[in-house]
Structures are given as C-alpha cells and as structure tokens.
Amino acid sequence: MNLRGVRTLYAFEMARWFRTLAQSIISPVVTTSLYFVVFGAAIGARIQEIDGVAYGAFIVPGLIMLMVLTQSTQNASFGIFFPRFSGTVYEILAAPVSAFEVVMGFVGAAATKAIILGLIILATATLFVEMQIAHPVFMLLFMALTAITFSLMGFIIGIWADGFEKLSFVPMLIVMPLAFLGGTFYSIDMLPPAWQTVTLFNPVFYLISAFRWSFFGTSDIGVGVSLAMIALFLAVALAVVAWIFRTGYRLRD
C-alpha cells in the first residue's frame, strides 16, 4: 500500500484548505451563528421545549449536521473536480496509487475538514446555549460516519460534474433541502402524519435523529435504525465509487 501517496494527497488537500482559512472556517461559523441568533434566540424564545430540551439547544445537533453534510459534500467534490478541471489529475492517474488510496486521500481530507468545522460549530453553540452531550463517543462516531459518507458523495459529484454549475447543483438543490426537511429545526412529531411518512424517505432525517440522540438521549426514530441507514448510505456510496474506478467513468478513457 502506498501510504505516503495517501498522506501526500491528504496533506495537499488540507494545505489547500488552510490556505483559504478565512473562507474555510470563518464563513461557516458566521453563518451558523446567525442561525443561532435567529432561530435559537429570536424565534426559539417563543417556542416551547421539545422533548424536555430548550429549542435553542434542540437545533444545535441539526445545525452541526447541516454544516457537516454541506461541507463534506462541497470539499470532496471540489477536491477531485479541480484537478480534473485544471488537467493536473493526470499526475494522480499516472502515479502508483490505487483507487482506494486516492479515495482515502481526498475523502479523508474532506471528512476531516467537515469534522473540524462541526466541532467548531459545537464550540460556538456553547456560547449561545447551555449544552450537555449524553453520549460523546456516539456523537463523534455519528459525525465521522456522516462526514465520510457525504464526502464520498461529494467525491462522486466531483467526478460526475463537467462544470461548476453541476458542482454546486447537488449540494445546493438536494443536500441543503434534505437537511432542512430532515428535522434540523423541528421534531418529526411536530409534522402532520402524512408528512411524517414522507420524512421517513429522507435519508438525512436518520442522520440528524441519531446525532440528536447522542446529545439528548431522545430521538424521533430508534438509534439502531439510524445506524443501519447510515451504514446503508455508506455502502451505496462506496459501491458507486468502486464502480467509477472500475469503469474509469470520467477519469480514464
């Protein structure tokens, strides 16, 4: 195994992120802080507790998950799209690194960035609301699994996209709405029965539900079901990436 190659790709991607630190970290933190101010303080003060949790605290896991989902997808998609766009991907294709190693480098870096941002958002949240984490290990596990799964999805988007338009299409028009409708700001119990059923088809709902459980010990759906769903998404994403490398889709003619 070419671990140095993996480390090189990983370090390269992380260095690119640190080079644009202001854009990479400050912008998401400011955005999320605004969510806290608007939904947590302004509107949240008028909303009663949900499952015994103050609304301001209730939305924290959802907001962290929103950030992890979007950042994983964006970072991984841009990470592989840019070398394809600039032509420098030739070097990766010609190097003695396997498909799995390439994925480890790119997806590992994208997931790391998303996790760092998630933790920064968590730290920021403690400035606005009182927080306690019931299951910290599970919290980290769910965050990591989500970051990896959506980084894989971002990697797939980065391979599929043949222009910047497509690159932002999925994160903005699919991931973001799914995150908003997956219970970031509300409990599924607050919806009419028909919409509760519709929500069950939203994959992001399971991620947020499980993540919220790790904070408060309560969730809309069983943690086991959520974990199984996350594992399923991970397996599907891995299968698609494996197919991409087997067929050379948009990478090798």
Binding site: G5, G87, T88
Partner: peptide, 27 residues
Amino acid sequence: LVPQELTTDSFEKVRDTVAFSRGLYGC
C-alpha cells in the same frame, strides 16, 4: 511523464508541487 499541456495548480509553490509529485509516488 511530462505532459504536452501546461497543466499546473496555479496557487501551489514550485518547491511544494515538486515535493507533492515525489510523495505521490511513495518516495
């Protein structure tokens, strides 16, 4: 391989991009 097209990562520094190539090959 030295490709025909001038494909480079615009924001990388010369030394870093050469070191990147070496690392990618596992050296």
